[in-house]
Design a protein around this nucleic acid. Structure first.
Length: 964
DNA sequence: GTAATGGATCTTTTT
DNA sequence: GATCCATTAC
C-alpha cells in the first residue's frame, strides 16, 4: 500500500525474524499492523492459519479482526479471511487449557482433574471470599506446621491472595516439591546483597547528630502496633543487625506461601474454578509440559500488540507456540502504566536479553523453543498524525519531569531510549492549538474550574479541525482525565450541577448507591420475610415514619400489604436471578446506568458460581463495605463531556482534553502502605508483621527488619511520568491542565506560569441529552422531604463570619475539628476504650457516660428520624448519647462551645431528638445540653410536637426550603 | 546555610 | 503508616 509513511512501510515489509517496534502515540500503529498482516498472508506459502495476533482487550481484538477481514475481503481473499486468528491473551490461554483440561494439574503433581465445565470467576470480591474460606480451612488443618507465619497469614487473607497472583504473573509456580521459575530463589528472596548495601548506606550517621536514618527508621517512628523486640544500640545500627534484616531467614514464610499456593491450585482445579491468573498459569504449564499441546497450538508467525503490557508468562507462552523465530512485538514503553499489576516494561526495553534467557530456561531439559534467537530488528514509527506539534512536544516533556524537588533524572540515558516523533497533521490543525495552565484556589474548586473551562471551550470561537471542515467545539469533543476515580466522581458532580451533560466512563462504586442498597434490602426481604434489615429500609425509603417502621419491626405482619405482595412476586422468581433483579428495579421505575450495571455484575457472578440469594446478599454487603468498583457503561455516543481515569484514556484521542488535580500528592500520586506482604525484585517476599515475643507474652507486631528494608529503597516516579505522558498525548488540539496546589509535574510543564479559571458563564443545554425523562415512581416514591436538623439551624455569628455559607458547622470555641475530635473521643469512651488523646472536656464526658451506663439501655451516636406531625416533613439527626432509665429517656448532646450563645438553636435541635426518642421508647424525654468545655450541663423542657411543627415551618420559610 | 519537626494526604485495574 | 515539603530551630 502506498499510504504508509517510510517507517510504517518498513515495518509492513519486515515480515521475518524478531521485530520489536516502538510505536508512539498517534503513529498509525493499528493501520500498519493490518498492512503487515496482509503482506504476510499474501505470500504464497503463508496462510492465515500460520499467523496468530495477540492483543489485551476484547475491543482491540475485535477491531483488529474486523479491519483485517474487511481488507482481505476487499482484496478478494474472502475464503482465507475465515481463518484469521486474532485473540486476547486470556482467550488464547483459555482455549489451550480447554483443549486438554484433564491434564492441567499434572505439572504440579496434582491428581484432581479440571473439566471442560470449569468457569472463570472474574469478580474480585467473590474470589477474595472464596480464598478466605479456603485459607481458613487450610490453616485450621495445617497451620500449626508453619508457626508464626500462619498466625500472620490468618489475619491477611487478601494480601496472601494478592501475593499469589503476583507470583503467578511473574512465572513463579509451586511444584509438588520446590519452586518453578527462571530464577526462583532470586525471585523469592530478592537481591539480599544489594539490600545489605542499601542498608549500610542508610546507616551512615549524620554528621551533626551522629544518628543514622536506619536507626531512626525503627527507633523513632514506632508504628501503632509496635515493633517486635528491637536491637539495642545508640544512633547507628550494628552491622550484624543490618545483616540480620537483609538476610532474614524467610524459610518459614516461604514454606507457608508455597503450601498455600500449591493447595490453592489443587483446590481450584478440584472445584473447577478458575481465575484469569490460574488460566494463564495452567495454559503455560500445559505448553511447557506437553509437546503434543505445543504441536497443536503452533504458529509460524506471532504478532503481539501493546507489548509493553505483557508479563513474563505471556512472553514465554508466545515463544512456545512459535515454530519459527518470527515474533513481531509492537508497543510503546512510554505508555507502560500497569506496573502495579506486575507487568514490567522489561519485556520491551530489554527484549533481546529476555528472549535469550527465557529460551535458555524453557529449553533447559528439552527443546520447547525450537529455534535460536536471531538478531533483533528494532523499528520505530516516528510520525504522529494525531496532535499538533506543541502538544506532542509537551507530552514528551512529561517523560523528563521530576516527581519531587530532589529527584535526579538521568536525562542522557533516557534520551537514548526515547524515540522522538514528528508531528504531522497535514496542515489541518495549523494554529488551532493551545495548551493552558489554570490555577484555582482550593482543591474543592477544581471541578468548578473544569466546568468553566468546558463552557469556555464551547462558547469561544475556537474551532475543531474535523477532516477538512472547521466547526465549533461541542461537548462530545471534550474529555476530562483524572488520576483517581474519586477525582472523576467529583468532576462528574461538578459538571452535572453546572448543568453540563457529562458521563463517567469506567468503574464506579455501584453497590453503594441508592439502587444498590434498595436491592440489598429487597434481597434480604425475599430471602427472609422476617428480616427487619430487609423490610425496614424498604419502608424507610418509601417514607414510612419511624413509628410505622418500628411497629413492623416488632411485628412483621404490620408490613404494608403492597410490600408483602411485591415480595410474593419476587419470591416466585428467586431462581431466575436476572428477572428477579429487573423486577425489583421495575417496582421503582428505575432503569438507569447504575441499575443496569448492578444487574450485569450480579447476573454474571451468579452464572459463574451458582450463588444463592444469601451469597448475593453477602457479596453486596462486602462490596458496599469495601467500595468495590465495577465497570459502568455510560451511553457512549451522547453529546456529552467524557470523564475517565488516565489509565482508561490510554489508546483514545480527543480534540480537547482537560486534566485537573495536577496537585501535590495526586499527580504524581504519593504511594500508600503496601499491605501485609511486600514483594518486589529488590527485596523479594517480605512480611510486614511478625509475632513479637516479650517477657511473658507475645503479640502481633510490625517487623523492624521488614520496615528497615522497606525504608532503604527509593521511590521511582517513572511510571507516574509515563502516565502523564499517556494523558498528555491524547489531545489533538486543545489541552488544559488545572491545579490548586501545583505539583512538580505541572510546575515542570508550565514553567510556573498559570492563568486563573475562565470567567463563569451561563448556558443551558438541551435537557434531552442530560437525562432520560424521569419515570413515574407512583406508590414507591419517597413521600416526604427530608432535612437534617442542622439544615434548619442558624449558627452564624454576629460578625457575619462562618454562617450559612459555611454549611452550618457548629461554630464552637475551639473550631469544628476540635469538636469532632471530642465527639469521637466520647464515643470511644462510651465503648469502654481509651481514646488516643486526652482533652480537658473528657472528664465531664466520662461522668455523663458513667451515669448513662447505669441506665436500662444506652446508646452513643444514634441516628434518629422524626416525622413532623401534620406535615410531610421528616427530620433526621444524630443523638450523641441516649439513655433509657425505665420511666424516662435522656437525650444528651455535647457542645464544645466557649459560650451558650446558641442556646436557643440547641434547644430546637435537642427538642427534635427528644421527641424522636420519646416516640421511639414510648415515654417522656429529658433533654440535656452538655457544655463540656464550660463544664456545665443545661437541662430544658423539650418543645411539644405542636410547638415544634410551627418552629420547623417558620425556619423552613426563613431558609427558603418550603416546598414548591 | 542545614537539620530536625510537624502537618497533610493518600491508587491505578485490559482479561 | 509512608512520604514529601514547609516551617522552625540552630
Amino acid at each position: 500500500m502506498s499510504d504508509l509513511n517510510e517507517s510504517q512501510a518498513r515495518l509492513a515489509r519486515t515480515l521475518d525474524g524478531m521485530v520489536v517496534v516502538d510505536a508512539g502515540p498517534g503513529t498509525g500503529k493499528t493501520h500498519t499492523i493490518v498492512e503487515r498482516y496482509l503482506n504476510l498472508v499474501s505470500r504464497p506459502d503463508v496462510s492465515p492459519g500460520d499467523v496468530l495476533m495477540l492483543t489485551f482487550t476484547n475491543n482491540a481484538a475485535s477491531e483488529m479482526e474486523e479491519r483485517i477481514k474487511g481488507s482481505m475481503t476487499d482484496r478478494g481473499m474472502l475464503k482465507e479471511s475465515k481463518l484469521v486468528q486474532t485473540s486476547t491473551f486470556d482467550a488464547f490461554c483459555r482455549s489451550i487449557l480447554m483443549d486438554s483440561p484433564e491434564t492441567a494439574g499434572s505439572f504440579f503433581g496434582i491428581s484432581e482433574r479440571l473439566t471442560r465445565g470449569a468457569e472463570v470467576v472474574s469478580n474480585d470480591t467473590l474470589n477474595e471470599t472464596w480464598f478466605s474460606s479456603f485459607l481458613d480451612d487450610f490453616l485450621a488443618e495445617r497451620g500449626e506446621d508453619f508457626g508464626d507465619a500462619a498466625i500472620v497469614a490468618s489475619q491477611y487473607p487478601k494480601d496472601i491472595l494478592a501475593l499469589i497472583n503476583r507470583l503467578m504473573s511473574k512465572g513463579v509456580f509451586p511444584l509438588k516439591r520446590g519452586w518453578f521459575g527462571i530464577d526462583p530463589s532470586r525471585d523469592l528472596l530478592g537481591d539480599t546483597e544489594g539490600v545489605l548495601e542499601d542498608l549500610r548506606r542508610l546507616n551512615e550517621p549524620s554528621a551533626k547528630t551522629g544518628v543514622s536514618q536506619a536507626w531512626k527508621a525503627i527507633h523513632e517512628k514506632a508504628p501503632k502496633e509496635g515493633f517486635d523486640p528491637l536491637p539495642q544500640s545508640e544512633g547507628v545500627l550494628d552491622e550484624t543487625d543490618l545483616a540480620d534484616a537483609a538476610g532474614e531467614d524467610r524459610s518459614g514464610l516461604l514454606d507457608l506461601i508455597h503450601a498455600v499456593y500449591h493447595e490453592y491450585i489443587r483446590k481450584s482445579i478440584a472445584s473447577d474454578r478458575l481465575t484469569f491468573g490460574l488460566t494463564s498459569m495452567l495454559a503455560f504449564s500445559l505448553l511447557y509440559d506437553d509437546g503434543r499441546i505445543r504441536q497443536r497450538n503452533s504458529f509460524r508467525y506471532v504478532m503481539i500488540d501493546e507489548f509493553q503490557d505483557t508479563n513474563a508468562i505471556q512472553l514465554m507462552i508466545s515463544m512456545m507456540v512459535l515454530s519459527e523465530p518470527n515474533l513481531c512485538a509492537v508497543g510503546d514503553w512510554k505508555q507502560g502504566i500497569y506496573g502495579f499489576r506486575f507487568v514490567s516494561i522489561h519485556n520491551i526495553v530489554e527484549f533481546e536479553e529476555r528472549m535469550v534467557s527465557m529460551r535458555r530456561f524453557l529449553n533447559e531439559d528439552k527443546v520447547r523453543v525450537p529455534f535460536g534467537i536471531p538478531s533483533v530488528s528494532r523499528l520505530s514509527l516516528d510520525v504522529n498524525y494525531r496532535s499538533s506539534e506543541p502538544i506532542v512536544r509537551n507530552a514528551f516533556e512529561s517523560l523528563f519531569i521530576r516527581g519531587t524537588e530532589k529527584e535526579e533524572i538521568d536525562v542522557e540515558r533516557l534520551e537514548e531510549k526515547v524515540v522522538r516523533l514528528k508531528a504531522d497533521t497535514d496542515g489541518r490543525i495549523g494554529d488551532l492549538t493551545e495548551t493552558r495552565f489554570v490555577r484555582c484556589d482550593g482543591r474543592d474548586r477544581e471541578p468548578e474550574a473544569v466546568a468553566r473551562c468546558v463552557l469556555d471551550y464551547v462558547q469561544s470561537d475556537r474551532e475543531i479541525a474535523d477532516g477538512d471542515v472547521r466547526r465549533p467545539v461541542g461537548l462530545g469533543d471534550i474529555a476530562v482525565f483524572c488520576r483517581t476515580t474519586s477525582g472523576c466522581a467529583k468532576v462528574l458532580d461538578g459538571l452535572t450541577s453546572a448543568g453540563i451533560p457529562a458521563y463517567l466512563e469506567g468503574d464506579a462504586d455501584i453497590m453503594s448507591t441508592r439502587e444498590g442498597k434498595l436491592l440489598l434490602a429487597w434481597l434480604r426481604y425475599v430471602n427472609n420475610d422476617r428480616d427487619p434489615w430487609g423490610f425496614v429500609p424498604i419502608m424507610a425509603d418509601m417514607g414510612y415514619t419511624l413509628v410505622e417502621c418500628r411497629a413492623a419491626r416488632d411485628d412483621p405482619s404490620a408490613v404494608p400489604a403492597s410490600i408483602v405482595a411485591a415480595r410474593r412476586d419476587l419470591y416466585l422468581k428467586r431462581r431466575r436471578v436476572t428477572e428477579m433483579l429487573t423486577t425489583v428495579f421495575s417496582l421503582y421505575g428505575i432503569d438507569n446506568d447504575v441499575s443496569q450495571a448492578i444487574i450485569t455484575t450480579l447476573s454474571t457472578a451468579h452464572r459463574g458460581s451458582l450463588l444463592t440469594i444469601s451469597d448475593l446478599i453477602g457479596m453486596i454487603e462486602k462490596d458496599i463495605a469495601s467500595g468495590s468498583r465495577y465497570p459502568f457503561e455510560g451511553s457512549i455516543d451522547r453529546d456529552a463531556v467524557k470523564i475517565m481515569t488516565m489509565h482508561k484514556a490510554k489508546g483514545l484521542e480527543f480534540p480537547v482534553v482537560i486534566i485537573p488535580y495536577m496537585d501535590r500528592g495526586i499527580m504524581p500520586l504519593r504511594p500508600g502502605s503496601g499491605g501485609a506482604y511486600l514483594y518486589d525484585d529488590r527485596i523479594g517476599i517480605r512480611c510486614a508483621y511478625s509475632v513479637g515475643r516479650f517477657d511473658g507474652y507475645s503479640k502481633l507486631c510490625r517487623s523492624w527488619r521488614t520496615a528497615l528494608v522497606a525504608a532503604s529503597g527509593s521511590r521511582d516516579y517513572s511510571e507516574e511520568r509515563r502516565l502523564l505522558f499517556v494523558a498528555a498525548s491524547r489531545a489533538k488540539q486543545y489541552q488544559t491542565f488545572i491545579c490548586s496546589d501545583p505539583s512538580p509535574f505541572i510546575e515542570g510543564l508550565s514553567g510556573g506560569v498559570y492563568e486563573g479559571p475562565p470567567a463563569p458563564m451561563a448556558r443551558t443545554f438541551d435537557s434531552s441529552t442530560t437525562a432520560a425523562a424521569r419515570p413515574d415512581l407512583s406508590g414507591y416514591r419517597p413521600r416526604s422531604p427530608r432535612f437534617a436538623v442542622h439544615d434548619l439551624m442558624d449558627l452564624s455569628t454576629e460578625d457575619g463570619m462562618g454562617g450559612m455559607s459555611e454549611k452550618n458547622h457548629e461554630v464552637c470555641g475551639k473550631g469544628p475539628e476540635y469538636g469532632d475530635a471530642v465527639h469521637s473521643a466520647a464515643e470511644i469512651i462510651f465503648d469502654g476504650n481509651e481514646p488516643p488523646e486526652d482533652y480537658p472536656e473528657l472528664g465531664m464526658v466520662r461522668s455523663i457516660v458513667e451515669r448513662a451506663h447505669c441506665a436500662v439501655d444506652s446508646r452513643a451516636e444514634t441516628d434518629c428520624v422524626l416525622p413532623i406531625a401534620g406535615t410531610d416533613v421528616v427530620l433526621r439527626g444524630r443523638i450523641d448519647l441516649l439513655a433509657d432509665f425505665g420511666d424516662v429517656v435522656e437525650v444528651h448532646d455535647y457542645k464544645t462551645d466557649a459560650s451558650d450563645r446558641f442556646q436557643a438553636e440547641y434547644e430546637f435541635q435537642l427538642s427534635v431528638y427528644g421527641l424522636a426518642a420519646s416516640l421511639h421508647y414510648g415515654k417522656p424525654a429529658r433533654c440535656f445540653i452538655d457544655y463540656v468545655s464550660l463544664g456545665r450541663t443545661v437541662e430544658f423542657d423539650p418543645m411539644t410536637m405542636d410547638e415544634l411543627r410551627d418552629e420547623v415551618l417558620r425556619r423552613m420559610n426563613r431558609m427558603g426550603l418550603s416546598k414548591d
